[in-house]
Write a protein that binds this DNA or RNA. Structure first.
Length: 116
DNA sequence: CAGATGACCGCAG
DNA sequence: TCTGCGGCCATCT
């Protein structure tokens, strides 16, 4: 039984409104070079922990013209996004040491925790 | 309206 | 450590 949905809270947690996108952009824009964040972490900061997938969608559809460091967002495991070749190169130029093979970054070392 | 999809996540095995 | 599976939720077919 999942009681969490029976609490008067709205079932629709969020939607891809321009406002929601802006909030995602704001957070991503704050990630300092040399550090990374995760999709789930961003969803958490927005108050919608279950919507990590939506954060991923927003970032994927982000116009390049905004010049956001969306490559600094990785999976909760620290691994990079499968199929996104650019990400590896970009992170490397920012001084982030990537583990061998397809391993990602060391989150204990590079995860951005909010303060610069 | 039912099923599939996705730049995800956490937990077994 | 790695894989698979189920859960998640807004959109798309």
């Amino acid at each position: 039984m999942d009681l969490s949905r029976h609490r008067g809270v709205p079932q629709k947690v969020t939607s891809l409104t321009p406002d929601f996108r802006r909030q995602v952009y704001e957070i991503v824009a704050q990630i300092p070079a040399g550090r990374v964040s995760t999709y789930g972490q961003i969803a958490l900061w927005l108050g919608v922990p279950q919507c990590a997938r939506l954060v991923g969608r927003v970032l994927r559809e982000t116009p390049a013209s905004l010049k956001l460091p969306c490559h600094r967002v990785v999976h909760a495991s620290g691994r990079l996004v499968a199929g996104w070749e650019e990400q590896r190169a970009l992170l490397r130029t920012e001084g982030i040491d990537l583990k061998p093979d397809d391993k990602g970054v060391d989150l204990r070392k590079h995860l951005w925790r909010g303060e610069e």
